[in-house]
């Protein structure tokens, strides 16, 4: 990944994919950004420059980030029979938005383990007890079917029996 500053405009990040195509993102200083696809013929010129709004950029990042995580988790699932890995989206109405992970006492109450959190296309591995949840977080948890269901209910309304 190459980072180039564009004085007076912002920053450009770009890289060459394994298939030999160049992709980039231009981030303007005022927050606008554009996805750049480079010409195969002329490696320095853009073939397309697609301006993205905040929501669109976030949605795209989510799509790409989540599929990556799923791919990694699929391998994990095969290794341990009986244990499941699940992504649980934290509901906006969850009582734990803005509160630390420790408050859920999830492992004590359900024996399911929170191994990672996905936030805005970023993976936060093994969050500690003082890790604070934010609205829109997706929790990645490992456990039995029953314990994962209980964890889902805890995250929704802090009641494991639902």
């Amino acid at each position: 990944m190459e980072q180039t500053s564009l004085p007076g405009i912002g920053v450009r990040h770009d890289f060459v994919t394994e298939a030999g195509r160049r992709l980039g993102v231009v981030s303007h200083r005022d927050g606008r950004r554009a996805l750049i696809v480079y010409d195969r013929d002329d490696p320095d010129a853009r073939l397309a420059a697609i301006p993205l709004t905040d929501d669109e950029a976030e949605a795209l990042a989510d799509l790409l980030g989540a599929s990556l995580m799923l791919g990694q988790l699929a391998g994990l699932r095969d290794q341990a029979a009986g244990l499941l890995t699940e992504q649980i989206a934290l509901p906006a109405s969850s009582p734990f938005v803005g509160r630390p992970l420790g408050d859920t006492r999830a492992r004590t109450r359900t024996s399911a383990s929170i191994v990672a959190t996905l936030r805005a296309a970023q993976v936060i591995p093994s969050p500690g007890p003082d890790f604070r949840f934010e609205s829109g977080d997706v929790v990645v948890a490992v456990g039995t079917r029953k314990s994962l269901d209980a964890l889902t209910r805890i995250l929704a309304d802090n009641d494991p029996d639902g």
Partner: peptide, 14 residues
């Protein structure tokens, strides 16, 4: 001209 993403643009700007 939509050239802000082009790789020669930083050269021009500098």
């Amino acid at each position: 001209l939509g050239r802000l993403g082009n790789r020669e643009t930083p050269v021009v700007l500098s």
